[in-house]
């Protein structure tokens, strides 16, 4: 198999001209997003080139401490994103900590497990494998955890009267919130279930596309994509279960009272 055809600055400029064309169209249609389009385009260029630069350095040095550092930065940023995507996150350090912790445990465990026992590069933390795998894990877990937490806290808020009525009748907190937790888990896992069901028929997943473009055999690419799909499904599922469990527990105090004042008030 051949290696990938290199892209010149000219090639990228031609692609960029398409974006300029779209910018002109949105301006003409008065959509009011031309500026955002420009900024987003610019961010793509800067962020991805920076990523390329960092990864290039990382792949050359392969220092475990540096890989750890990058991995932690990735989790930290994903945690912020999870909090930002919730309408009523928990107040204080719980708001950030709960989602980040669930993601951290689930995605790190599964990535390390896959690296050590399935892919087995030499050394097992080889950045060419570990960083992209972790990135894909986090990208999907992030969505799952954010959806789960948002559904849990929003439903608990909306159905607070029902939850309290169930507590009044002597149900324990687990029973009183059970339906809401289950629904939040379903909500969190649906995107990844859909992705698995659609993979290969409706969409060619991003990683497989990348491998095909870089000249891998389609069959090898397919096998890698299957591995990734299973990894991210498991990772998303475990993280969603964890965050839903901790989240539900945090909604109640030691006397099994619903404490919605622990959620922040949405702005605007």
């Amino acid at each position: 198999m051949n290696s990938v055809i290199p892209l010149s600055a000219m090639d990228l400029s031609i692609a960029a001209s398409l974006l300029v064309l779209l910018g002109g169209l949105t301006w003409w249609l008065r959509l009011g997003i031309s500026q955002r389009l420009f900024v987003a385009g610019l961010r793509t260029v800067v962020q991805l080139l920076l990523l390329g630069l960092v990864l290039k350095y990382l792949f050359e040095s392969s220092h475990p401490a540096l890989i750890m550092l990058i991995a932690f930065v990735m989790v930290a940023v994903a945690g912020r994103e999870v909090m930002a995507r919730q309408h009523r996150p928990f107040k204080g350090s719980w708001g950030y900590g709960l989602g980040t912790f669930s993601m951290f445990i689930s995605s790190f465990t599964i990535t390390i497990f896959s690296l050590a026992f399935i892919v087995s590069p030499e050394p097992w933390y080889l950045p060419q494998y570990s960083i992209p795998l972790l990135g894909m894990m986090l990208g999907n877990t992030m969505t799952g955890v954010a959806l789960t937490m948002d559904s849990l806290t929003t439903s608990a808020w909306q159905q607070r009267a029902v939850i309290e009525q169930r507590l009044m009748l002597g149900e324990d907190w687990r029973t009183a919130i059970r339906d809401i937790s289950r629904q939040s888990l379903r909500t969190g896992m649906i995107p990844i279930l859909n992705a698995m069901a659609a993979a290969g028929i409706i969409s060619i997943p991003g990683m497989m596309t990348g491998q095909l473009l870089s000249g891998s055999s389609p069959f090898e690419a397919a096998k890698y994509q299957i591995l990734i799909m299973f990894m991210i499904s498991a990772g998303t599922g475990f993280a969603a279960v964890m965050s839903s469990w901790f989240g539900a527990k945090r909604l109640f105090d030691d006397r099994q009272r619903l404490r919605l004042e622990r959620l922040s008030v949405p702005k605007g």
Binding site: V162, R166, L167, M168, L169, G170, D172, Q256
Partner: peptide, 20 residues
């Protein structure tokens, strides 16, 4: 006692009932 035990014995009937 555990809160559910207390609430089953000292039961509150709220003004507006809830059904799920």
């Amino acid at each position: 006692v555990m809160a559910p035990v207390w609430r089953r014995q000292v039961s509150l009937l709220p003004a507006e009932s809830q059904w799920w």
